[in-house]
Design a protein around this nucleic acid. Structure first.
Lengths: 141, 141
DNA sequence: CTTGACCTTCCCATGATGGGATACCCATAT
DNA sequence: ATATGGGTATCCCATCATGGGAAGGTCAAG
């Protein structure tokens, strides 16, 4: 049967014991068997699911996405189109977030390039963070 | 003097009233004047700081970074090197996060490309999320 | 029998932001 | 004068994924 404790399940799947209990509490996985001591014991199928979850997390899927992916994974009669749709939606999300980070990075690199970075106080980076005065004093009609 | 209420400060600086109060509570900005009604009133210098904070947030700086940037900004005798160091450290962080997101996106795009995405159940995406069986059954010494 | 290494549950924290409840202050319309 | 509506104040709770830690139970080895 190959039943393992939560620490062993953690070591095997790479999911922390804390997170395993958490996944159970939010219903992402179902409650496992307990020994008489009320210790959780996991069987291979459950370890498999935990491994699945960890890989999904590694790819940045949210719990909500993972919930759906797990359900499709368990369903032998699923359509691959549903899985692909979830994945592609996530790809869009990832690309959008990456683009936002890169835009920030580009701006900062440009500013840093024109900052001499020595003991003098004048700094184009701080200047760029400085809001234009009109935006503020323009508020007294 | 040009004193404005928190809603006006929010409209001018683009920082929500909720966040303005929050910034105050965590000591990022100092507590503003109050009228007899205990309403907060902001002067131009304070609006300026809020605008500075919003722009910093737009560039993805954390509150801790902003705390330092604000302190340098207020310090007329600062060295631009300190500002540049914070900015470049943040650039590294942004690039690293963007790279991580892109790696996920690449993997998913590759998997999705080989998934036919129709009514059939076999799906390379789910296969990739499936942990190898050895990793699991390998746990019975 | 103690020590140490597990396990359990429960509460709290993060970071940035929003939602909502309750109560107060004020101006305008009835 | 009062009802209505809108701004404000404080406080608590929620998010998302994760971890820290306390308090107490269980077990094997020394």
């Amino acid at each position: 049967m190959n039943l393992v404790t939560i620490a062993q399940a953690s070591a095997i799947t790479g999911v922390s014991a804390k997170m395993i209990r958490h996944y159970e509490s939010i219903g992402l996985i179902k409650a496992p068997m307990r020994t008489e001591n009320r210790y959780r014991h996991y069987c291979e199928a459950e370890l498999h699911e935990l491994g699945f979850i960890r890989r999904s997390r590694d790819l940045g899927f949210s719990f909500e996405d993972i919930r759906q992916l797990l359900s499709l994974w368990r369903d032998k009669a699923r359509s691959s189109a549903e899985v692909k749709a979830i994945a592609l939606r996530h790809v869009q999300d990832l690309d959008q977030k990456a683009a936002a980070l890169e835009a920030m990075s580009r701006t900062l690199k440009r500013l840093a390039a024109t900052c001499h970075g020595d003991d003098r106080p004048d700094c184009p980076i701080l200047d760029a963070l400085d809001p234009p005065a009109e935006a503020i004093s323009h508020s007294d009609p």
